[in-house]
Structure formats: structure tokens, C-alpha cells
Design a protein around this nucleic acid. Structure first.
Ligand SMILES: [Mn+2]
Ligand SMILES: [Mn+2]
Ligand SMILES: [Mn+2]
Ligand SMILES: [Mn+2]
Lengths: 220, 220
DNA sequence: ATAAAAATTTAGACTAGTCTAAATTTTTAG
DNA sequence: CTAAAAATTTAGACTAGTCTAAATTTTTAT
């Protein structure tokens, strides 16, 4: 099948493509995978040979249908394992990503099927990210960033765009957990920071940097 | 830390050493790892450089204390994952070995600790193999081979020495499951085959080849 | 429109792990 | 004790994935 490395490139291409329009650049991939552009170029040629990406030299890449299928399968595994680690083993949501990065490469269709069933076919991972279906579809969510919410509106915290341990621990510190309801009490015009009221009545200060990385949906 | 490949060599050295006296030979390792003797020689030099094995050229190898510690850790992970796959995900005991071969290399101390707790700190894997302790001790079991049991004796099936899918499915077919009690009804002097009586009263024919690979303990 | 800057690819080299073929050491048999 | 056989190691080569430095292409700015 495909090597760990190939799987990781495909996943990264999918991720970068989902956050922009047009082709994904060599440099963006190099930064994301913590390698050099020269190494990325080599790998892109290989992935193109295997028909996993569309690639014209100097023009960036995008996934083929087959490439996207593989990418979504890896993302599905990653997110299912994250659910397992949090729901069954009791890990914190800030501690599971790196372990899932390894578990996602275990090669067994049967394992994924059984794991999914065992977990009750979850729709979202511990960070609110939707879990691709076994048929290879990425469920769409209509969430907005907290930074785009008007003052006075009440919304529910549905996901995060940043997955670093530091960021997630900061949210824990602020008592901002997934699915909690919050009201935007004040918006500071100068630095775009927010004052946000929790259900408990307590208000917390949320910087623009943080608000940009929080996904929210209609309350209730 | 150590690469997958290094971990697999250490595990294999441990396995071969446990089934013989004296040093493990290059050829034995080559056969077991399905590589060539030349490749094994290269790797042995590397493992010796890392102080994981005692190695004198042409004289075979044995694990150092550190090498054994690493080997036991991998075996512990392998067996805990096998318990998970059978007990939690509902896999058959004949289907878990290959998946565990991959899962055993996931690098997280915390993961193993939590998995162990989650599984209720099991002492044995689905094949009756003892699970090394977190302190790095391999529990000793005083089992005998079914092929060494005298006619008329009643014993309990405690483990298997052969882990192939084919062998395990054959046992399923014979209704020989772990912890079932059996009585040796007849022993055939010519081919050493046995007639064995199950608790149900039914008798099954067990070839010497099969009996050699079944571990039994005192009944009850 | 062109020159400088930025992005990308190519060239050549390195490591881990593997192989075949050849050389060396140990073991076995006579 | 010696010669053949068996086991093991060494030599040289290959692949996947990576790197640095150099070459090439594209983009940007005057
Ligand atoms: Mn993750
Ligand atoms: Mn996640
Ligand atoms: Mn096994
Ligand atoms: Mn086992």
C-alpha cells in the first residue's frame, strides 16, 4: 500500500487545500511537514507517478480522487483513535494528537470498522472535527469563528482550529470546553479581544488570536 | 529511541533465546525475521554498538539487561493490544497477531499504562501468554505440553506455542478453547496422536503436532 | 519590460535497512 | 589433524527519504 510518509503528505495536502483555494505550494508543504522544499519536490514526483496528486512542475498540487480517498481514510482513523483515547482511556483532549498521528497508520480495514462500532460511530472527534464517513465523505459543518460573532449573541462552542497542547490547555484554563454556551458580552475595537460570559455567569477575556481559532454554532 | 526494526530484532532475539540455551545464531535470526544472514550481521553490529546485545563475531548474541528491558516492553505492549482487540473489539484470537505487530511499536508510555488499566491489568493475552509486568518482569508459568501428559489425566488448556491463524482456527474447529478442561483418553504409540475428551463428553482426535503446541496446567 | 527576488526543481550526497556475491571463520567428518 | 561443509561477515550495490548547494522558473517591482 502506501508508506507512512506518503500518507502524511496526502493528509497534509488535504489539510492545506481545505484552508485555501487553488493548488497547494511546495513551500507550504515543506513548512507543514518540517522538511525542505527539495524533499517535498522529490515526494511530489513520486505521488504524481502513483496518480495520487495532480502535479505540474512549479504550479503546485492538488489531490486526485484517489489521493483524496486515501487522505480522508487517514483522517478518519486519526479522529476515531482520538475519540478512543479520550472517551475510553481518559486522556485529556490536549494529549491525544501525537499518539493518534502514529495510530492512524495502522493498516487494517477491519480494525477501523470495529473501532468505529465500539465507539458508537461518533460524528466528531474530541476537538469538534467531523469524522469522515466510511464511504469517504467529509461531513460539512456550518460553524463560524468566535471572532466573527456580534456582541450580545449567544453561541455554542463546537470546535477548535488550532490543536496544539498549549492552546487546548489555555482553553481548559479559561473553562471553555466543547459544547458549552457562551455570550459575547463585549468586543474591544482596538485589539479585537472579547469579553465572553459563560453559563456560570463568569466572564472571561478572550484574545482575538484565541477567538479566531474557536468554532461556534447556533446556541441549543 | 529505537526504530521499529531494532525493536523487532530485540523481540526476536528474546523469543529465540527463550526457546534454547546459549547464544542466538545469525541464521536463526535471519530465518525468523525473513531476511538474509548478511542483513542480520549488519544489524547485530548496530545493536551491539547501542549496548543492546552482547556480540562477539561468529559467536552469536544474547540480550544485555537493557536489551531485555526493551524486548519485554515491546512484548508487553503486543500482548496488551491483543487483549484489547479480542476483549473490547471482538476480534477472534486468530486475527489479532498481525495488527498487534504494528500496535506494539506506538511510542507512548502513558498509552500503555492507561491501556493496561482500561483492560483491568490482565495477566495473560488471548493465547495464554503471560503479560510482562510494567516493571519489566516476565511472569513464569509452570505449564506442560499436552503431548507430555499421561493417559487418563485431566488437565486445563492454558496456552498455545504456535500462533498462526491456521493453527488457532484448527483449535476452534476442534472446540478446544483456552481454559477448557480435557482428559487424555487414549494415546497412540505409533504416531503419538491423542484422543481427548472434552467436558461435553465429546472426544476429539489431536495429532502429536497439535499436542506439542498446546500448553496445559493442573485441572481446576 | 526587465532585473531582482522568491519559489521550485535538480544534482549530488547521506542514512537505515536490505540484497547478492565473495571472503573469512568455525564446525564437522574422515 | 586436515579438508570439506556450514555459518558468518564483509564488500558493494540498491531504495526510500532526507539534506545542502546550485540551477531554473515564476513572480514582483521598478
Ligand atoms: Mn489530531
Ligand atoms: Mn482532532
Ligand atoms: Mn501475537
Ligand atoms: Mn499472543
Amino acid at each position: 500500500m502506501h508508506s507512512f510518509t506518503e500518507e502524511n503528505y496526502l493528509k497534509t495536502i488535504y489539510y492545506l487545500a481545505s484552508r485555501q483555494t487553488g493548488e497547494v505550494s511546495t513551500n507550504a508543504l515543506a513548512e507543514m511537514t518540517a522538511t525542505k522544499a527539495a524533499s517535498v519536490s522529490d515526494m511530489l514526483r513520486k505521488l504524481a507517478d502513483k496518480q495520487l496528486i495532480h502535479y505540474k512542475k512549479y504550479q503546485g498540487v492538488r489531490l486526485t480522487e484517489e489521493g483524496e480517498r486515501v487522505a480522508l481514510q487517514i483522517i478518519r482513523r486519526h479522529r476515531l483513535w482520538e475519540v478512543f483515547l479520550v472517551e475510553k482511556l481518559g486522556f485529556g483532549w490536549d494529549a491525544v494528537h501525537d499518539i493518534a498521528e502514529e495510530l492512524e497508520h495502522i493498516r487494517s480495514e477491519e480494525l477501523v470498522t470495529r473501532l468505529d462500532t465500539y465507539l458508537g460511530c461518533p460524528q466528531f472527534d474530541p476537538h469538534g472535527d467531523p469524522i469522515p464517513t466510511s464511504a469517504g465523505q467529509m461531513p460539512q459543518t456550518g460553524y463560524q469563528k468566535l471572532s466573527e460573532i456580534n456582541t450580545g449573541q449567544r453561541v455554542q462552542l463546537m470546535g477548535v482550529l488550532e490543536h496544539s497542547t498549549e492552546f487546548l490547555q489555555h482553553l481548559d484554563h479559561l473553562d471553555l470546553t466543547l459544547s458549552c454556551s457562551v455570550t459575547v458580552a463585549e468586543s474591544n475595537a482596538f485589539d479585537k479581544s472579547l469579553l465572553v460570559q459563560l453559563e456560570s455567569g463568569r466572564t472571561v477575556f478572550v484574545s482575538h488570536e484565541v477567538a479566531k481559532n474557536l468554532l461556534v454554532g447556533e446556541s441549543q
